[in-house]
């Protein structure tokens, strides 16, 4: 039968090579319309795709802008402002002036410098706490998800118990043990935040564990650790990255809350939350004492939350 095709072409064929006819099979693409759409444009790697989508999300880009801006402030800001603990002997509670763009607080310190150092401290604490909690969460989640059975049950029961305790109380509990100050705050935040990460990582592991290529790897005798690292972790990557970005934001928020309640950063260290607490008594007379630190907190948290959201949308493969 196939010879007839060759014989049939008497005139000039429109296409060049006759082999085209015999190569390939009837493609019945799975997705109809979408299949033809996919022929438009070159193939892209996951990262490029994600970055492209991220770029198009205006809110996410705004968040990124905020984050970069604030990080710059945190790094370079101290070069431009005076020390946050330099107390003037003469000037107290002054509204914003040229010399003190954010005003002066009730102790005589320049509010602008305190805000700058506060941002610096917040970002530092946010990053540190998130790094630690991600590490703990990934390790615990991976072990629980991979080995399963009783290890999983015990670990998850523990996580559930800790999650059942209202966050503030848990934080208080840790503070009681760890004391106050920056290190204590960092660890308190980390020790409460890893729970969510562990859960997510565990879920990811459980899902992926069943995949065939993992079974194949196991059958081939690849060590557990390697399988975890090379096959599974990349899959869990996406939700963890999102959690990290959002985590920094919520860590900053929590630090502010704890300092506000008096159990976080202690005076005279410049914490934005502390500043809000201090501003309490001067609401009517010096509202700027509340506004500037408050705004700083909002912008910082907002930036990270937006980036986290943007990452979530950008890395979400589902919508393809």
């Amino acid at each position: 039968m196939t010879d007839d095709f060759d014989a049939a072409r008497s005139g000039d064929p429109v296409h060049e090579t006759p082999e085209v006819l015999h190569a390939g099979t009837i493609m019945i693409p799975a997705l109809g319309l979408d299949a033809s759409l996919q022929e438009v444009g070159p193939s892209r790697s996951l990262f490029q795709d994600a970055w492209r989508r991220f770029r198009r999300n205006k809110l996410a880009m705004f968040g990124l802008f905020l984050v970069i801006l604030l990080i710059l402030v945190a790094i370079f800001g101290p070069l431009f402002v005076q020390s946050p603990t330099k107390y003037s002997k003469t000037v107290f509670r002054e509204p914003p002036t040229r010399q003190h763009p954010f005003g002066v607080d009730h102790r005589g310190a320049d509010v602008l410098s305190r805000v700058v150092y506060g941002i610096r401290l917040s970002i530092f604490i946010g990053f540190m706490a998130t790094a630690i909690e991600t590490f703990i969460g990934v390790v615990v989640g991976a072990i629980a998800g991979w080995y399963g059975r009783w290890i999983d049950s015990v670990a998850m029961r523990f996580v559930d118990i800790m999650l059942g305790i209202p966050y503030i109380i848990l934080a208080y509990a840790f503070i009681t043990v760890l004391g106050r100050g920056v290190t204590a705050v960092v660890f308190t935040l980390a020790l409460t935040a890893w729970l969510q990460t562990a859960r997510t990582v565990r879920a990811g592991f459980i899902q992926v564990k069943e995949f065939e290529y993992v079974e194949a790897a196991r059958a081939l005798g690849v060590s557990n650790f390697r399988i975890m690292a090379r096959h599974i972790l990349p899959n869990v990557f996406q939700p963890v990255v999102v959690l990290m970005a959002v985590g920094v934001g919520s860590a900053i928020l929590s630090e502010a809350a704890l300092s506000f309640l008096g159990v976080g950063i202690q005076p005279p260290e410049p914490s934005l939350g502390l500043m809000v607490n201090d501003a309490r008594s001067f609401l009517s007379s010096a509202p700027y004492l509340l506004l500037f630190p408050g705004l700083a907190i909002v912008l910082t948290v907002l930036g990270f939350l937006l980036v986290g959201d943007g990452l979530r949308d950008a890395l979400d493969v589902k919508d393809n």
């Binding site: 934001g249 928020l253 408050g294 909002v298 948290v301 937006l306």
Partner: peptide, 18 residues
């Protein structure tokens, strides 16, 4: 909605009181 999620509760509280 995004902003509301970012404003710390205590800041918002004082702001409203203000």
């Amino acid at each position: 909605a995004v902003i509301a999620g970012a404003i710390p509760v205590f800041v918002l509280g004082y702001l409203i009181t203000l």
